[in-house]
Design a protein around this nucleic acid. Sequence first.
DNA 1: CTACAAGCTCAACTTAACTTGAGGTCAAGC
DNA 2: GCTTGACCTCAAGTTAAGTTGAGCTTGTAG
Lengths: 147, 147
Amino acid sequence: MAPATELTVGQVAMRSGVAVSALHFYEARGLIRSHRTSGNQRRYGRDVLRRVAIIKVAQEVGISLAEIGEALASLPEGRTPTRDDWNLLSTAWRDGLDHKIAQLKKLRDGLTDCIGCGCMSIDKCPLRNKGDRLAREGTGARRLIAP
Amino acid sequence: MAPATELTVGQVAMRSGVAVSALHFYEARGLIRSHRTSGNQRRYGRDVLRRVAIIKVAQEVGISLAEIGEALASLPEGRTPTRDDWNLLSTAWRDGLDHKIAQLKKLRDGLTDCIGCGCMSIDKCPLRNKGDRLAREGTGARRLIAP
DNA sequence: CTACAAGCTCAACTTAACTTGAGGTCAAGC
DNA sequence: GCTTGACCTCAAGTTAAGTTGAGCTTGTAG
């Protein structure tokens, strides 16, 4: 068997673990891209697997498809992304991710401490204040794409 | 003015920063609880503020209301939660939160490294494998409530 | 005592992220 | 050459998490 450099939608679904319908959906949203055979069937390059992997992991930590899409848009459509391309994506997300990590740690470590923090007046709660600042900062989309 | 130990829905909304409609919604879902005045209006104990704070922070990091609800169910309905109550909640969530933190760090630090990780065969991608294991582990609800 | 802001209920609408289904095409094995 | 499974499109349905609106009641300030 020749090294199939192109993948069908079914193969991508199988290897990535997401449903065919979801792949269609991602494509409609511009998160991934394919070209068509003469018979109008989708064919994907191998980098689609990595894109889908990113999508899944990012989603799992609460990043919306819209935000993921914006970030993935920084990756080149034509060629396989280079290390630098990924680096750019990493960098764009870093602040947002750092924030989320901090939030999670607060949840993990802070719940108990919080009991003694003066929460009764919620304004002083360190847990809550973080959330407030974020909420006031803007439109959400802005969150992961550092200004 | 006497120290109002009870809060109206409007007051809770103002202090917690969530909409009145959302509070109604949370109540319908059993995440918070109120009692009613003779005139059928809601009155909340002060601990509702902390509950709402938890809900918001947890949501922001991608935990669903259903999961939050399960966790909050471990808090006593009748009385103000003690340190031990919160501790229980923390502990129940710890594994799930640890996992999420790990995922986030991977996203933050790992995207770039991943380029050299053999991702071409996605099965070997450390980023992806985490996700896979989680996906296969079960029904999602199980994720944050350690077995 | 009355005006009107704040509450109440319930149903319907919204957005995100998909899934399901209907109806039709493509391609590989026998 | 035909059957069967993988694909295709497009519309409609689903779940989560709320929001919006209509119509009606409460409670408080003047």
